[in-house]
């Protein structure tokens, strides 16, 4: 688990919607439908890439590399983080 601020909150399998605000974690896999998955990968959501959540809510704001994206909580659950 690569949570920098709250390592104690580490659970064996964490998805993006559960990542606490402003904590960095690393992508393990993407289990989305083919279209969403390929769009996410084009945007840089690859295995091993670190990302952060900047805003919680029904739509999250995610920072990955220099890209800032809004993604729905429901879609965010398909992005598994390294445990």
């Amino acid at each position: 688990m690569e949570l920098r601020k709250t390592p104690q909150s580490a659970t064996p399998s964490l998805d993006l919607s559960q990542l606490p605000l402003n904590c960095e974690a690393v992508i393990a896999s993407i289990a989305a439908a083919p279209r969403l998955a390929s769009r996410l990968r084009e945007l840089g959501f690859l295995r091993g890439q670190p990302l952060r959540v900047l805003r919680a809510g029904s739509a999250l704001i995610v920072q990955i590399g220099e890209t800032r994206l809004a993604i729905r909580r429901r879609d965010a659950t398909s992005i598994r983080l390294v445990s």
Partner: peptide
């Protein structure tokens, strides 16, 4: 459908 939107600077 899924919603993905870039927030430019």
């Amino acid at each position: 459908p899924p919603f993905l939107l870039e927030l430019p600077s």
